[in-house]
Design a protein around this nucleic acid. Sequence first.
DNA 1: GTGGTCTAGACCACA
DNA 2: GTGGTCTAGACCACA
Lengths: 125, 125, 125, 125
Amino acid sequence: MWFSIDFNSHVPVYKQIKEKIKSMIVTGKLKKGAFVPSIRSLAKDLGVNLNTVSRAYRELVLEGILKVVRGEGYVVEGLDAERFLGKKLEEFRKMVLTLKGDGIEYEKLEGILREVYGGEENAES
Amino acid sequence: MWFSIDFNSHVPVYKQIKEKIKSMIVTGKLKKGAFVPSIRSLAKDLGVNLNTVSRAYRELVLEGILKVVRGEGYVVEGLDAERFLGKKLEEFRKMVLTLKGDGIEYEKLEGILREVYGGEENAES
Amino acid sequence: MWFSIDFNSHVPVYKQIKEKIKSMIVTGKLKKGAFVPSIRSLAKDLGVNLNTVSRAYRELVLEGILKVVRGEGYVVEGLDAERFLGKKLEEFRKMVLTLKGDGIEYEKLEGILREVYGGEENAES
Amino acid sequence: MWFSIDFNSHVPVYKQIKEKIKSMIVTGKLKKGAFVPSIRSLAKDLGVNLNTVSRAYRELVLEGILKVVRGEGYVVEGLDAERFLGKKLEEFRKMVLTLKGDGIEYEKLEGILREVYGGEENAES
DNA sequence: GTGGTCTAGACCACA
DNA sequence: GTGGTCTAGACCACA
């Protein structure tokens, strides 16, 4: 059921975990009131240290996204989807700007977009 | 004339410098045989330590992109543009995949693409 | 009839329970020979696990403050009030020292003391 | 120059460090713009692990009390003294309430207060 | 079983 | 020199 970590990424592992959890909440894979996996089980699944997951969860609590239930685990509180997606789109815009700066043409990027999104149902031309 | 560093990025500063240099070579802003700025001046411009720029240049030399001219500075050797742009597009594809996974619709991304690439040829409005 | 637990305190719940029981003995609310509430009922009242109350009682027995009556429950044995209060005052002194170190004036603390201890005999206003 | 940790306290070490730093800012021992000791040197002084100090500093940054300067260290930003002292006094009130509940008389506490504050200059009677 | 804290030590980036 | 992250493992409290 669980996701994986990119150990080659510059993004620290605990931040990757935070993003994944947020993503799963936004997409409804983790619903409000549900328990996220225990620190130790997620750490084991991801091949990561307990402290790393612990830090991710702790920060999500500070952000009001998770809640800790004594002796039981972490529960989903909620997440401002609007804001989460807004940030993601902002990152996307930044990357597109960079790519434009690198001289890559619009069509290249649109092509990839269509490929990823499967083609037919999304493309007009 | 010089670029800037995103100190909040997870991408290490020396890697950001490498990427910028490469980008300027690919886009022709730095031509083969031209001198890149001296380590001292670039470090000053960017507000970073000499060691950081030094490391970026050193690695660019190892990659065959720059060449040291003893006592004079670093000169552009060349760069496999195909490969550079290929990597960039690969990163783009990865990000699009993530965004799709977050439930963001094709249209949202295409809209941003059009915005960034200016109006006329791509946008209808 | 029973007290409450501060779940936000750093003091472990089982220690809070021990302190409360001791306090009630010292103040005569629990007299020698009286039964303290059963583990089950106290756990229920406080909203904590049986094990937690159990641990508190067990340690109080080890300290000679409670005694197990097989099949009946836990009975108050007694408590060195002098020592109990001495510890409390020691903690108070420590806290006052810290507050003095923080630059808080004598009058502020005395004011709070008077407030808590009610008006007439101590306060002028 | 530095403080010490109470390893027997229930208060986690990283929280003790946070409180000490705050206290030193409030009392002017650490002024705005000054560097706090480096993570590693403080860890060594206190006989504590680097990660523990690191967590304390990191949380102080989140609270806007410290600021991190890349490659240089942590700098004092500022602290709402009013709020800090208010919290301290609240803790004091709570403790006094408990002590009153334990049957300790006003005079005992006032006596300790006077002792700690040196007597003459503060006491009226 | 759950989380919380801490240690000893490693490796990296930046000044 | 500075901070940042991570691991492996320990010990504790609570359900």
